[in-house]
Amino acid sequence: MSVDAATVKRIGRLARIRIEEGEVETYRNELNTILGFVEQLGEVDVSGVEPMTSVMPMTLRRREDKVTDGGYPEKIVANAPLTEDNFFMVPKVVE
């Protein structure tokens, strides 16, 4: 499998990274080099093998579903580039 220019642009849109026209070819080459390298995984016989979900044998710990933290919105927004009344500010989304 190899990617073409249209795929590079599509992946850029999915990843929310602006790809300029002049960068497409470089990305296409680099992605194809990496995908060419990982292609060899196809030769491994994985029949009957479960995909790994946890590298250490453990069951996910659970806790009671209740609020245990919070109540400090000013800390949450402290590092935001633009805020108002402890809300994050973004360009208008809904007309």
Binding site: L35, V38, V46, E50, P51
Partner: peptide, 30 residues
Amino acid sequence: RRIMIGTYVLSAGYYDAYYVQAQKVRTLIK
């Protein structure tokens, strides 16, 4: 580059061929 690769291998139609296959190989490595 890595975000692009990651987005590609997780995208519809490629997930099984790349990501699931890699996680199966990971089981074998372990």
